[in-house]
Amino acid sequence: MNKYVFLVEDELLISLEIEMLLSELNIKSHGPFSSCQAALAALANIDAHSIDCAILDVKLTDGEALPLARVFHKHGIPIIFSSGHANNHHLETYYPPGKYIAKPFDPTVMKNTIALSVDKL
């Protein structure tokens, strides 16, 4: 059974890299979505149970990704926050079992974190 990751990242280059990592892990992805708006719209058409993990860039083109985080948290989907801001560490405690990865990230760390989060289910 294929694992799905819901990817929200406004920087296309970075989402490209993550997609590469995902394909290495043999995980499929929804996205990438560069805005909160687009992500929410897409989410409406996806069965939440199919999503094993969400990777959220905190700052998106249309604001912060917190509304998205709430939705995922509601459905019990683990969230990996990735952000360039130094002060967003608290997010992983707000939405357990969330993880926080500071940008620029180590691809290995990202890869392991995704693998761990997906395996948890």
């Binding site: 280059l13 890299e17 360039g84 620029p104 990230f105």
Partner: peptide, 9 residues
Amino acid sequence: KNLFAIIGS
């Protein structure tokens, strides 16, 4: 940081 992230990717 963003720049570094882009360069990294």
